[in-house]
Computed example of a mutant assay.
Amino acid sequence: MSDPIEAAILEELAKLGPGKSIEPADVAKELQLEQWQRMLPKVKTTALGLMRQGRLTITKKGKAIDPARMKGVIRLRLPTAEETAAALAARPPAPESDDDLD
């Protein structure tokens, strides 16, 4: 099952094209116009997950930021090839399988 917040973020970015960014509030308003403030923390959490997967870049003043410093006004955009490679390289290795233990 697809996450509706994740889908909304990626759809909004796809509409804009490469190099363009959106505010998390734009996505929250798209999902729940009347109570978008309640949706905003969920949008930011989903964006953080997408960033850790290498599928999204979180920026501040046009520059990619460390997620630990995600504070204040941020924007979301699709990552460059270099940013995707760096995010994937920073992921912890997958646990080894125990298939040979019988």
Rank of each mutant, 00 (worst) to 15 (best):
Q53Y: 14
P4H: 11
V73R: 11
E6G: 15
L48C: 09
P24I: 00
T84M: 08
Q35C: 03
L16T: 07
E12Y: 08
D99R: 15
T84V: 13
S97G: 12
V73Y: 08
L16P: 04
A94S: 08
P24A: 02
P67D: 04
Q37S: 04
G49A: 15
D66K: 03
K71H: 07
D98I: 09
P67E: 11
S2F: 13
L31H: 02
I58E: 01
T57N: 02
M70K: 02
T84Q: 11
L16K: 13
P95R: 02
E23L: 15
I22R: 00
P4V: 12
A90Q: 07
R52G: 13
A28Y: 00
K15L: 12
A64E: 05
V27A: 03
T59S: 13
S2W: 08
V27S: 02
R55S: 08
D26I: 02
L78R: 03
A89R: 10
L33K: 06
M1N: 14
Q32D: 13
V73T: 07
E82L: 15
K44R: 12
L101G: 00
R52W: 14
D66C: 14
R77Y: 15
I74R: 01
D99K: 10
A85Q: 13
L88T: 08
A64N: 01
K60P: 04
L56A: 09
K61Q: 06
L10M: 14
M51Y: 09
A86E: 12
D66T: 08
M1Y: 11
P24T: 03
I22W: 03
I5M: 05
V27P: 00
L48Q: 11
T46F: 05
V27M: 00
L31V: 01
D66Q: 06
L88W: 06
D66S: 13
Q37M: 02
E34R: 05
I9M: 01
K20N: 10
E83Y: 07
K61G: 07
A85W: 05
K71V: 10
M51C: 13
M39I: 05
P67A: 13
P95Y: 01
L40S: 02
A28T: 01
A25Q: 05
P92W: 13
A28H: 01
L88C: 12
L33A: 11
R77L: 08
T57A: 12
G54R: 06
A14I: 03
L40Y: 10
T80Q: 03
A47Y: 02
R55K: 15
V27D: 00
T57G: 01
L101M: 07
L88Y: 06
K44I: 06
P4N: 11
K44P: 01
A25R: 11
R75N: 06
V27R: 00
A90D: 07
E12D: 14
K29G: 02
K15G: 12
A90K: 08
E82A: 11
M39W: 05
V73E: 06
A81N: 05
E30M: 13
V73P: 06
K29N: 01
L48T: 15
D102V: 13
Q35N: 09
Q37L: 04
G54S: 12
E23S: 15
P4Q: 09
T57M: 06
A89M: 04
D102C: 05
E23Y: 15
K15E: 11
A94E: 10
A90S: 12
D66N: 11
P18S: 07
Q35F: 14
D98W: 14
P93A: 10
T45Q: 11
T45L: 07
E11G: 14
I22Q: 00
D99G: 04
L33W: 10
I65N: 01
T45D: 14
P41S: 04
